[in-house]
Simulated assay, not measured.
Amino acid sequence: MLRLLTGLFKIAVVSLITGAGLSAFDITAADILADLGLTPENVLDLLQRGAAWAVPNIVLGSMVIVPIWLVIYLLKPPRG
């Protein structure tokens, strides 16, 4: 768990430094999106459609995987 938090902290620090550097050159997120031919509304729509597709599939998959994992976990010999 500590490694995960350390990794997330490093990503946050590097992102902050990169954002400050880009801001110094007057580059905004809207400029980068415009260069890619996207708008913030398009990105939000893509995220919503992706979540609408992913959530039902995650739930469906977990209905199969979780019981299998539970049976395997219960049938494992105890550690000693």
Results as ranks from 00 to 15, higher is better:
Met1Thr: 06
Met1Asp: 10
Leu2Gly: 03
Leu2Lys: 15
Arg3Leu: 05
Leu5Thr: 06
Leu5Val: 03
Leu5Glu: 14
Thr6Ser: 10
Gly7Met: 04
Gly7Leu: 02
Ile11Val: 13
Val13Ala: 07
Val13Gln: 12
Val13Glu: 08
Leu16Thr: 11
Leu16Gln: 14
Ile17Lys: 13
Ile17Thr: 12
Thr18Ile: 07
Gly19Gln: 12
Gly19Cys: 03
Gly19Arg: 10
Gly19Val: 00
Ala20Tyr: 15
Ala20Asp: 09
Ala20Gln: 14
Gly21Phe: 09
Gly21Val: 03
Ala24Asp: 12
Ala24Ile: 02
Phe25His: 12
Phe25Ser: 11
Phe25Asn: 13
Asp26His: 11
Asp26Thr: 03
Ile27Tyr: 13
Thr28Phe: 05
Thr28His: 15
Ala29Asn: 13
Ala29Cys: 03
Asp31Ile: 00
Ile32Ser: 05
Leu33Met: 14
Ala34His: 10
Ala34Tyr: 06
Asp35Glu: 13
Asp35Val: 00
Leu36Asp: 11
Gly37Lys: 04
Leu38Gly: 01
Thr39Ile: 01
Glu41Met: 01
Glu41Ser: 03
Asn42Arg: 14
Asn42Glu: 15
Asn42Tyr: 07
Asn42Phe: 02
Leu44Ile: 05
Leu46Trp: 15
Leu47His: 15
Leu47Arg: 13
Leu47Ser: 07
Leu47Phe: 12
Gln48Pro: 00
Gln48Met: 08
Gly50Glu: 05
Gly50Leu: 01
Gly50Arg: 05
Ala51His: 10
Ala51Glu: 14
Ala52Met: 06
Trp53Asn: 04
Ala54Gly: 07
Val55Pro: 02
Asn57Cys: 03
Ile58Gln: 14
Ile58Asp: 05
Val59Ser: 04
Val59Ile: 08
Leu60Arg: 15
Leu60Trp: 14
Leu60Asp: 08
Gly61Phe: 02
Ser62Lys: 11
Val64Glu: 03
Val66His: 12
Pro67Arg: 04
Ile68Cys: 02
Ile68Gln: 08
Ile72Ala: 11
Tyr73Ile: 00
Tyr73Glu: 07
Tyr73Gln: 09
Tyr73Gly: 00
Leu75Cys: 08
Lys76Asn: 04
Lys76Phe: 02
Pro77Trp: 02
Pro77Leu: 01
Pro78His: 07
Gly80Phe: 04
